[in-house]
Each structure stands twice: as structure tokens, then as C-alpha cells.
Design a protein around this nucleic acid. Structure first.
Length: 581
DNA sequence: GCCGTTTTCGGCCCGACTGTTTTCAGTCG
């Protein structure tokens, strides 16, 4: 068992103990131990060594013994015994917002509810509202949550399926019968939410490619299998479609299945204007063209396909019919930012607050990615659940960073804070403390249900502070989970432009905001973008890739994104706003 | 269940919000 699996088993023990109504501190002990073990850099052998285990903070005799049992046998008698006491589907009830252990326990004991389906039935018959501690409103909310769950079923965050998709694409590309391979669809357009994955393969041996695809390790089961199209379900639960075409058909198939639908409609109309028809296989003369159509040009790739319609090449991210055709016609498409353009990043967490990796580990990971600088921004004191930093601990971290910068020169570390914006728009630290830092990330983590007016005023007040360098995740949305709070984005963008505050594209796949749809407006107002990973562990610095995708969808270039500046440039930029004092 | 030197028991994370209550429990971040 890996340490991640062991941590998951401990989490499950904690959940089941909660359902039993155990001592809350005992429950927390299991949760803490799970977190500790996940963050622990240790080998498989260490997981079987009780003495080594007991040295992990939060792991004592009892938990060490259970971890050892899990590591050596792959199961735990204690966990199995707990599982026997509850129906397995009861755990899915925790995915309904507003339901915690106490409420689930009541539903289970008093209404024999043990799955989402049974909960829905209980709500519809009105039995839930009659339970003590519940009411009509709660019952209604549960119904709405179940409906929203059903609506989102089959939707995935881009980041949740990306590694599986890339693995499958790479393996297909390595197949000797595959001549050209690409992912198409919304994944290729870098939409933040995808419903399926489309693979396009050019080959002369469709059967060989299809057979290889169907038996790939990430494939859970085959839904349909035909000569040109095959559908499977992957381990993550997403459906993946494979289309095998000839080399000549490939650019047409790739373009057609990349979409979007709206983009394709414009493309087809441009074909009709020329007396042609366009489909997923070719351009052909339109059957009922009024006059003799112009000769159909040879098309070997997508670039030539766009050229055939009098257009510059349109990057997949822009294919949303949001002005890309006009720009491609008059040669004003932007040169979009590339991952390689990023020279550094900000807004990274460490173990000082709720990160999983140490300052040194985060810095080393940034260096490995080839970054010239990294900004550390742990949570501020109000974020108690995230172990937010008080002034004194912030000073300690500043000293550590200063020392790090003295001992190594290959990457520059900036010292910052992710400072909470309090209810009234004031900040979690005084200016005197903020002034000592290289940068300040301001963000909202509380009081989400203010009115739009109040929230807008709150955020504008916060970013008007001279020491606030950038505004993080401006609506607080969690994709497929929680809508953003009400806020007047254009007003916030005006204030950001006026005060010289950068606005973040939070690259974490669950956030990906400020949403790409706002960026053309933001850019027109002169707002500058900063792409940050909001990384809580070293491996998540890789999320910058998703942030760049979002920036590209927002038509942003290297010049629009401050962290494309080299170290000397960013040092100057960091000082600009506060020099207005 | 873990932790600790003011230890071997007693504390362990706090505040806002919501909906249910009529003074508070449960959930969430």
C-alpha cells in the first residue's frame, strides 16, 4: 500500500468513527495522522517500521500499529470492523453540501437512509423535514444538492483527467501504426470543464489502434466499438472516444472534433460561401452550388485548412466564436503566451500554513521547473483552520527566506503573504507588517454571502491598499462544487487598473479564475495578469500549465502577464504600486 | 488517540453562517 492509500484508509476510519459518534478528538487524531503520513517523505520500508512511524508527529502507538498492518497486509482489521457497521454507500452522503456526520447519522438511524438514492426518496416523501434538527428548508436544499449532483455527473475538471488523457495520448503516439495522434475536443481547447475526451489517430491499421486503445490500462470498460469510432470509460469515470482516420482525413477530423460547435458552424458557412462543403473528412464541392466553385486546395494540416478559408491559423484555445474569425481575417490575432514564457510565479504555500511541503522543497521544485523566482505566500492569521501565520511566525519565515537567498543564488525567493480580506475590506495585517514583505496577495476566504455591492466594496477597499500587489481568485468559485460569490467584476477590474493591482489567474484546476471570459475586458482596461499555482505541494507547481491554458483562452500574450518578466523586471514591478505612497 | 516537562491527566482550532430553535447544533473554511 502506498502512503497515499494508507492516508486514505485513516481518513475513512475518521469518517466512520464520526458516524459512530466517537470522541471528536480521537477522530481528529486519525485525520491529523493521515495528513502527517501523506506529507512524510519516507520509503515503503519505513511504513512497516513501528518505531520509525511513531516519530511522525501525530502518530502514536495505536495508529502506528494500524499503519504497519495496512502497509504489510493491505488491510486493517479495525477498518474492516468499522465498515461492517455501516452500508458502504453511506459514505457518498458526505458529498452532499450541508450534510455532515451528525445529520447523516440521524438520517441513517431514524430513516434508514444509507445512500443518495434513498435520501432523495426520503426528501420527496417529506420524511426528512420531520426529523428533529431538520426542516423544510434543509430538505429543499438537500433536494437541490442532489439535483445539482446529477446535473454535474459526467462533468470533470480539466485537471482531474489531464494526466490520464496525456498518458493515453503518449502511448497511442508511440504505437508503430499511429502516424498522427492528437487529443481534440474541449480538452484541446483547454476548457476548464470537460465532459469527454476525444482522441484522433491517423493510421492505416484502424483495427490495431482500436485494439490497443481498448486494452489500455487506464480503460475501465468498452462502451462501443466500431471500425472508425470507439467509446470507452476510463478509470477516472470520463468517457473517451477514439476516431481513427486516414492521414488525408486527419486535419479535417482534428479540426471538426476540436470544435467548438459554434466555431465549426462559422467554418462550414465559410465553406458554403465558396461553393464547398466541409465535414470531418474533407472539403468537397457543394452539390447545389450556383456557380462553378473555385478549385479546392490541398490541405495537409490545420494551418492549411484555415488558409483555405482565407484565415490565419487560429489556436485551439480561441475556437469559441468569440471574435477569432474577425481577428484571423485582418491579421490581428494575438501571439498567445506559452508555458515557456513564464519566468517565475507567486502565491505558493508551505508547511508554515497548510502546505504539504517545506519552503526548501517548494523552492527546489520551482528551480527544477526552470523558474527564476518564486513567491511564497502562506495564509494569514485569520485562516485558523489553515494554520495561518501570525506576525511572529511570518518574521521567522522572512528570516528563513533571507537566509535561503544568501546561501543560494540560482533562484530568487520572494517573501509574501496571502492576506485575508476581512469582512469590511480591511486586511488581516497592518501596513507596517505588509510593508516589510516583497509582495502581498489579497484574497477572500470568509463571509461569502455578502450582497454584490458589499462584496465589491470590500474587495475594492482591499486592493486600494498600496501594499496589496495582487488579487487572488476573485470570485472564490470551486468548479463543479461551488459558484463564486456575487461580485461586480467590471468594477473590480476598474479598481485594479486604477490602483495598479495585478489580478490572478489561479492555475489550480479547481479554480482557474479570474475566468478566461473576463480577460479581454480586463486587458482593454489595462489590468495586468499574474499566473499563480496556489500550490499546496511541490508537485502542484505543474498546475501553471493549466493557468497558461486559461490565459491563452483569454487572448493573453506574454506582455499581458507580469510573471513573464525576468527577475530584474519583476523586481521593478513589485515596487511600483507601493512607491505611490 | 496524541501530546507533554507547569505531564501521566487534561487539553486538543476558531469564528461565521444557516437553520433550527428560543439558546444552539451542525457545517464549513
Amino acid at each position: 500500500m502506498t502512503k497515499e492509500q494508507i492516508a486514505a484508509a485513516l481518513e475513512e476510519i475518521a469518517t466512520l468513527l464520526e458516524l459512530k459518534g466517537e470522541n471528536p478528538f480521537k477522530i481528529r487524531a486519525y485525520t491529523n495522522a493521515a495528513r502527517s503520513i501523506e506529507a512524510w517523505g519516507a520509503s515503503f520500508a519505513d511504513l512497516q517500521n513501528e518505531q520509525a512511524l511513531e516519530k511522525i508527529p501525530g502518530v502514536g502507538k495505536a495508529i502506528a500499529a494500524k499503519v504497519k498492518e495496512l502497509a504489510t497486509t493491505g488491510s486493517s482489521t479495525f477498518l474492516e470492523e468499522l465498515r461492517r457497521q455501516f452500508p458502504p454507500a453511506i459514505l457518498e452522503l458526505f458529498s452532499i453540501p450541508g450534510l455532515g456526520a451528525k445529520k447523516i447519522k440521524a438520517l441513517h438511524e431514524q430513516l434508514q437512509v444509507s445512500s443518495v438514492a434513498e435520501l432523495q426518496a426520503a426528501c420527496e416523501s417529506g420524511r426528512v423535514a420531520q426529523l428533529s434538527g431538520f426542516g423544510e428548508t434543509t430538505q429543499g436544499k438537500i433536494c437541490a444538492a442532489i439535483a445539482s449532483r446529477a446535473k454535474h455527473a459526467g462533468s470533470f475538471q480539466l485537471g482531474a483527467v489531464a494526466s490520464e488523457a496525456e498518458q493515453l495520448r503518449c502511448d497511442l503516439a508511440a504505437h508503430e501504426e499511429a502516424m498522427q495522434v492528437s487529443l481534440a475536443g474541449s480538452f484541446r481547447r483547454r476548457k476548464e470543464i470537460v465532459r469527454d475526451l476525444d482522441f484522433i489517430v491517423a493510421t492505416n491499421s484502424p483495427e490495431a489502434i482500436t485494439a490497443y486503445f481498448c486494452q489500455h490500462p487506464v480503460v475501465e470498460n468498452v462502451i462501443a466499438r466500431g471500425p472508425t469510432k470507439t467509446s470507452v470509460r476510463l478509470r477516472s469515470g470520463i468517457q473517451a472516444d477514439l476516431r481513427v482516420v486516414s492521414n488525408a482525413e486527419y486535419p479535417f477530423a482534428l479540426s471538426y472534433f476540436t470544435g467548438s460547435k459554434e466555431h465549426n458552424i462559422v467554418m462550414r458557412n465559410r465553406a458554403l460561401d465558396r461553393g464547398w462543403t466541409l465535414n470531418e473528412y474533407r472539403i468537397a464541392p457543394a452539390p447545389n452550388a450556383k456557380s462553378t466553385p473555385p478549385e479546392i486546395p490541398q490541405v495537409n494540416d490545420e494551418r492549411e485548412l484555415y488558409r483555405a478559408f482565407g484565415l490565419e491559423y487560429i489556436a485551439p484555445e480561441l475556437r469559441e466564436n468569440c471574435g477569432e474569425f474577425e481577428a484571423a481575417e485582418n491579421g490581428s490575432l494575438p501571439r498567445l503566451i506559452e508555458r515557456e514564457n513564464l519566468r517565475g510565479t507567486f502565491h505558493c504555500h508551505t508547511t508554515a500554513s497548510d502546505g504539504h511541503d517545506s519552503l526548501e522543497e517548494m523552492v527546489a521544485a520551482a528551480q527544477e521547473l526552470g523558474l527564476e523566482y518564486i513567491g511564497i505566500a502562506d495564509h494569514s492569521r485569520s485562516q485558523i483552520q489553515a494554520h495561518g501565520l501570525h506576525a511572529a511566525r511570518l518574521q521567522v519565515q522572512r528570516a528563513q527566506i533571507r537566509k535561503l537567498n544568501e546561501t543560494q543564488k540560482s533562484i530568487r525567493v520572494f517573501s509574501g503573504i496571502e492576506c485575508d480580506i476581512l469582512r469590511d475590506g480591511s486586511l488581516d495585517f497592518d501596513d507596517e507588517i505588509l510593508a516589510q514583505l516583497d509582495f502581498v496577495v489579497a484574497s477572500v476566504h470568509s463571509n461569502f454571502s455578502l450582497s454584490e455591492r458589499e462584496m465589491t466594496d470590500r474587495v475594492i477597499r482591499a486592493i486600494s491598499n498600496l501594499f496589496v500587489t495582487m488579487l487572488a481568485h476573485p470570485t472564490g468559485r470551486l468548479l463543479l462544487k461551488r459558484d463564486g460569490y456575487a461580485i461586480d467584476i467590471p468594477a473590480v477590474l476598474d479598481a485594479a487598473a486604477a490602483t495598479g493591482t495585478w489580478v490572478e489567474i489561479n492555475a489550480a484546476p479547481k479554480r482557474l479564475e479570474l475566468d478566461w471570459r473576463w480577460w479581454p475586458l480586463a486587458k482593454s482596461k489595462g489590468v495586468r495578469c499574474v499566473i499563480n499555482p496556489d500550490a499546496h505541494r511541490a508537485s502542484r507547481l505543474q498546475d501553471l500549465w493549466f493557468g497558461v491554458g486559461a490565459a491563452r483562452k483569454g487572448w493573453l500574450t506574454k506582455a499581458d502577464v507580469v510573471n513573464c518578466l525576468p527577475l530584474t523586471g519583476i523586481e521593478t514591478e513589485l515596487k511600483k504600486k507601493r512607491s505611490n505612497r
